[in-house]
């Protein structure tokens, strides 16, 4: 394991060090005293693990292709932006546009997430991105979503809506699993409820088990939660909007 002390290190230098460590074969890199440095893990194609202690800056793991990043702290905005594959585990909250346009990989967040999370997530063949959020999500959650799966647990949010306004507007692919409280009126007309299948249950079981393991929840309790499944009404939400000039 390689440990890099990020205290007072400019992001560019820090990221160079991380890339150097990876290219010299490090399988596990620990970053300590991280304090707002951006772009950690961006564009890295490798299978290394990066552990972050502190608070990484925006666009962490953007375009990432393979690594596992575990953050002991909060994530900032645009975690996993357009990421292709890999795993991100955040022991805290994550900011706006988490998982924007991600096409593969997984993001586990213990706490809440900001606005526009999961926006434009997409899937292609065997690449199906998954996001598991322990807390609640802000406005525009899963907007324009085109593929992938998001589980929103809403833990500790009793009495308030776990999603904000304009949830899933323009959604035309993918699946949402959302637990209990939400304002029905917050949802866009492009989604509809659907029955959980055996496949869904298997999927939930597998990811909730990992969620519990990552964040130390009681597995039985988490697995016992009920979810409502949302799927797109169609894959062509705006197919009939136009007239030929």
């Amino acid at each position: 394991m390689v440990t890099i002390d990020a205290k007072g290190v400019y992001y560019k230098e820090l990221n160079e060090k991380v890339k150097e460590a990876i290219s010299s074969g490090a399988e596990h890199i620990e970053l300590i005293n991280v304090n707002g440095q951006r772009y950690i893990g961006d564009g890295i194609s490798a299978s290394a693990k990066i552990t972050i202690h502190g608070i990484p800056g925006n666009d962490m793991a953007a375009f990432m292709n393979g690594p596992t990043i575990e953050v002991f702290g909060n994530g900032q905005d645009a975690v996993g932006n357009t990421m292709n594959s890999g795993t991100i585990v955040i022991h805290g909250n994550a900011g706006d546009v988490t998982g924007y346009a991600m096409r593969g990989g997984e993001i586990f967040i213990k706490g809440n997430v900001g606005y526009r999370v999961g926006i434009h997530m997409k899937a292609y063949q065997d690449k199906v991105p998954v996001m598991v959020i322990g807390g609640k999500a802000g406005d525009f959650f899963a907007e324009y979503m085109a593929g992938g799966k998001i589980i929103l647990l809403g833990l500790g949010c009793e009495g308030e809506s776990v999603v904000g306004r304009y949830c899933a507007t323009g959604l035309h692919g993918g699946t949402l699993y959302i637990r209990n409280n939400f304002e029905e009126r917050y949802f866009g007309k492009e989604v509809q409820r659907d029955e959980l299948t055996m496949e869904d249950k298997e999927f939930l079981k597998s990811y909730l088990t990992r969620f519990s393991d990552y964040f130390g929840y009681d597995k039985q309790e988490i697995l016992g939660l009920d979810f409502i499944k949302f799927v797109p009404v169609g894959s062509r939400p705006y197919g009939n909007m136009y007239a030929k000039w």
């Binding site: 645009a78 924007y100 292609y124 690449k127 525009f140 324009y144 593929g147 894959s235 062509r236 197919g239």
Partner: peptide, 21 residues
């Protein structure tokens, strides 16, 4: 097109007005 854009065949490819980031 599906393979190049990495989206399922036959689904709309919607580019939102803004980049949401």
């Amino acid at each position: 097109v599906s393979q190049t854009r990495m989206i399922p065949e036959g689904s709309d490819a919607i580019s939102p007005a803004p980049h949401h980031d």
